[in-house]
Amino acid sequence: MSLSGPNKLARSAWLSDRARESIAAYVFLLPWLIGFVFITLGPILASLALSFTNFSGSLERMQWVGLDNYIRMFTSDRAYWGSVRVTLLYVFVSVPIMLAFALAVAVVLNRGLRFLGIYRTIFYLPSLLGTSVAIAVLWRYVFGQYGLINQLLGLFGIEGFSYIGDPRSALQTIMVLNVWTFGAPMVIFLAGLRQIPAQIYEAATLDGANAWQRFWSITLPSLSPLVLFNGVLSMIGGFQAFTQVYVISDGSGGPAGSTMFYTLLLYQRAFTQLQLGYASAMAWVLLLFIGVVTAVLFLSAKYWVHYGEGR
């Protein structure tokens, strides 16, 4: 530090404090800036450009095809709309159920019970494991013909079927897996519940509000910013579900396309059929769709999200 004193004086002679701070900031930001330009922004723009080509791995044979990829996607790719349907069902059914579980368990845990830490640990653990290959493997055996579920049903004399192998139920098993990971939003709700002053509840109770009324008129409005936050994050995560689907369906999206998620179709088109231009178009449609849904959620916020009385 004895060296830096005079050194600093020498430097400040030709650079203002503000200029030096800006230079330092960009040095700190350098790794992120490089990553942002080359690994995030560049690829996003490149995939937009690729989506108008028939790129399949060799630049020499690449041709500009205009909107062909988008036209093919919307009109003639048979698997496409099926994958859209499966993905939308998955996201818009399993995410709300997951959030409802997260909220319900958080409210129960917030009643000042003992062993809160232990419960929280157990409920949270699945959300760290939920996207691993091992859990997807486990799911195949839990919901298979001779799996855990059917063994348990067998104890009551009920004969089940292979839930993974049946097109009517395969998607539902993957939804159950998503709901199983409700621990992460639960922890966020729990942190939010701690912020609600107890006096509000006491005042409401004095006014004769029952538990149900207190939940609807105090708890839910106070947590609404977190509902929005968890909703957006879980939705974006849901649209990107891949590992579970790939492992549970052996990469096929079967049975009968019932688990052909958008991401899995994109992966097949890109990396098994090398239709990289077409898959880029699929990626951009996904990006735009997520952007629109997120924007709608944020715009709708003014009708249902309450940001305290202060503003």
Partner: peptide, 26 residues
């Protein structure tokens, strides 16, 4: 404090929401 701080911060936050599949091929 540095020039374009707000813009860069907004861009950085925006990348949190990017689906990774949109970046995968490039």
């Amino acid at each position: 404090n540095f020039p374009f701080r707000r813009t860069l911060f907004a861009l950085m936050m925006g990348t949190i929401m990017l689906p990774l599949h949109a970046l995968l091929i490039p």
